[in-house]
Every structure is written in C-alpha cells, then in structure tokens.
C-alpha cells in the first residue's frame, strides 16, 4: 500500500525574531525586512508524519508551498529531511491571499499535481495561525478532513485512524482515503535533517507553477482580490503599568492601604 502524500508547507518569519517585527501604521502590513524566513514549525510535524508513513508503506512525499520565489530555499531545506519533490506556487497574482484564497490556490496546485492519498498540513501556521486552511482545503478538494490531530495510524483496509482531543476526551476517527489532515505539534517528534538527504536535495525535482499553470483557475478567488478577510485597522497593545507606592507605619497599616488601593482600582 504505497502512499502518495502531499504536505502543504508554509514559510513564515522566524519565531525567534518576532520581537523585531512591526506593523506599518499606514499600509497595515507587517514590516519584516531583515527577518529570516523558516519552515512554519507545525508543518515540520506534518513532514515527519509523511516521512514515517513513507518508511513504513513506501510511496512518495511531495511538498507544496504558496509564496514568493525565495521559498525555494526552505523547500530545499525540507527536501533535506528526506521528502522527494517540491512544488512552489509563485505568482504576483497570488500575493496578499488570506486563508480562503490560500486554501483555494493550494487546492488547485494539488489538483494539478494529482493523485494524492493523503494531504497533510500543519494545523495552524506559526504566523497567521488562523487554522482555517486545512478544513477549507478539504472542502475545496471535496475530501474528508480532520484537524487538531494528535495521533495517526493506517488501518489494514487502507483507511486511517486519526485521534483528536475534544474537550478533555480523545476521539478517534476512521477516515477513508484520500483525506486532508491538519496535525498538531503533539503528534510526533521531528527528526533532524540528514547529510545524505541534504546533498540529494539539490538534485530532487523542483517545480514552479504560476497562476497560468493551475487548472480552471477562478482568478476572482486568488490573491488580494480573492480574499474576503482584510486587515483594516489595528491597535498597539498597551503594556503600560502604573506604579503605586504603599506606605504606612507598620505592616497592618500597609495592608489596609493596599486593600484600599486595590478596592479603589476595582471600581
């Protein structure tokens, strides 16, 4: 039962550098120049699951990412974990996409590549983190989908059993393939990349697709124009704290004063 697996991989700003990201007050876009881009953390767990399944059942792991040409670097890095090939959906027309436009575009890329038994995603990206893309993608593709997955195995008849935590209990779902699965970081421990795979990464197939390459693409559904969600305003969080000195002749007086200040503040 060889498995043909696609993993959707987002490239996001390095979480270690989040403190250097700011919002442009005029354009309301993120200012992230000089901040390294990395593979969105949860997607590494989707990659890990894909590689484990490939080791067990054979098959192929294809990475799919939507983003600028520079995403090639992180895709090659992911090939260094042992994935087989990478597809980059890159086009100016795709820029500014929200989760809906992103999931639509990814579904078109997946249709174009064709024939996947499993489509794996991180449950939520490190930056946008709406956690909308996995279910939306399942809907676009007309496939069963499950998110928040913390356990995964294949059954003998070729279905998968996926575990999901629901209000303190764990539900197990039996899902027929093909299916779309959003995984959490709890699912597994990510391996380190491997020297041999890093050397092989350069020679592995890498395909860049533009909007024109995608089958029956509805251009009103892609990019900024196809995005019903747009950031229109923002507020800077106010972390200002007041400092009040509690005085008194002894501890009893200070405690009474403290109580008075707290009660006054509550009003």
């Amino acid at each position: 039962m060889a498995l043909n697996i696609a993993v959707c991989m987002k490239v996001a700003p390095d979480p270690d550098k989040y403190n250097q990201i700011s919002l442009d007050p005029v354009t309301k876009t993120l200012v992230r120049s000089g901040i390294d881009s990395v593979i969105s953390g949860t997607d590494l767990h989707a990659i890990e699951l894909a590689l484990q399944l490939k080791t067990k059942f054979g098959g192929k792991v294809t990475l799919i990412s939507m983003g600028p040409d520079s995403n090639e670097k992180q895709l090659r890095e992911a090939l260094g974990y042992g994935c087989d090939e990478a597809v980059l959906l890159s086009d100016r027309k795709l820029g500014g996409a929200d989760a809906l436009a992103t999931s639509y575009t990814l579904s078109k890329g997946i249709e174009k590549m064709g024939g996947y038994d499993l489509v794996l995603l991180g449950n939520a990206s490190d930056d946008g983190s709406t956690a909308h893309v996995p279910s939306q993608l399942g809907e676009w593709l007309g496939l069963p989908h499950l998110t928040d997955v913390i356990g995964f195995e294949m059954t003998e008849e070729g279905c998968c059993l996926a575990k999901k935590e629901v209000e303190g209990a764990i539900n197990t779902y039996k899902i027929s393939l093909p299916a779309v699965i959003g995984v959490t970081k709890r699912l597994n421990t990510v391996r380190h990349p491997n020297v041999m795979a890093i050397f092989a990464a350069k020679k592995k197939p890498f395909t860049k697709l533009t909007a024109a390459d995608l089958p029956d693409l509805d251009e009103s559904r892609i990019g900024l124009a196809g995005s019903p969600t747009q950031a229109v305003g923002y507020l800077d969080a106010d972390f200002h704290r007041d400092c009040v000195e509690i005085t008194g002749r002894d501890d009893t007086e200070k405690a009474a004063e403290l109580l008075r200040v707290v009660l006054a503040a509550k009003k």
């Binding site: 670097k73 260094g80 380190h192 020297v195 890093i198 050397f199 350069k202």
Partner: peptide, 18 residues
C-alpha cells in the same frame, strides 16, 4: 554555499536541542 548552510543549520539545531 547553500548545501553548507543547510548542514550548518542542521548541526546547529542538533547542538542546541541534543
């Protein structure tokens, strides 16, 4: 080069996490 950057980040991650 690009490959060596990958080796470097792999070894760095190994050093930091393991």
């Amino acid at each position: 080069n690009e490959e060596r950057e990958m080796l470097q980040s792999m070894a760095r991650e190994l050093a930091e996490t393991e």
